[in-house]
Simulated scan of single mutants.
Amino acid sequence: MSGRVEAALAELGLTLPDVVPPLAAYQPAVRSGVYVYTAGQLPIVDGKLPVTGKVGGEVTAEEAHGLARICALNALAAVKSVAGDLDRIARVVKVVGFVASAPDFTGQPGVLNGASELLGRVLGDKGVHARSAVGVTVLPLDSPVEVEIQVELAQD
Rank of each mutant, 00 (worst) to 15 (best):
T15F: 10
A25I: 15
K48A: 13
R131Y: 09
P103E: 09
A100K: 08
A8N: 14
V5A: 00
V79P: 06
E58W: 01
E63R: 14
V111D: 05
V147S: 09
A8M: 12
L14H: 10
L42T: 03
A29D: 03
V136T: 12
I89P: 05
S2G: 01
Q41W: 00
G53P: 09
A68M: 13
E58F: 00
L86Q: 10
P43T: 02
L67F: 13
L73S: 07
G135N: 04
V51W: 00
L112V: 13
I70S: 15
P17R: 10
V151S: 00
H65R: 15
G57M: 05
V51P: 00
Q41G: 02
T38K: 01
V82S: 03
L141G: 02
A39I: 07
H65M: 11
T15Q: 15
V82R: 06
S101V: 08
A61S: 15
S101M: 12
T106E: 07
L73A: 08
D85A: 13
L76Q: 03
A100D: 04
A7K: 13
V138P: 02
V99A: 08
A72Q: 10
E63L: 12
I44L: 08
A115M: 08
G135I: 04
G107K: 08
A133E: 06
K54M: 07
A61I: 07
G107C: 04
V51T: 10
V79Q: 08
L12Q: 11
I89F: 01
T52V: 14
R131L: 08
M1P: 08
T60G: 00
Q108L: 06
R69N: 12
D18W: 09
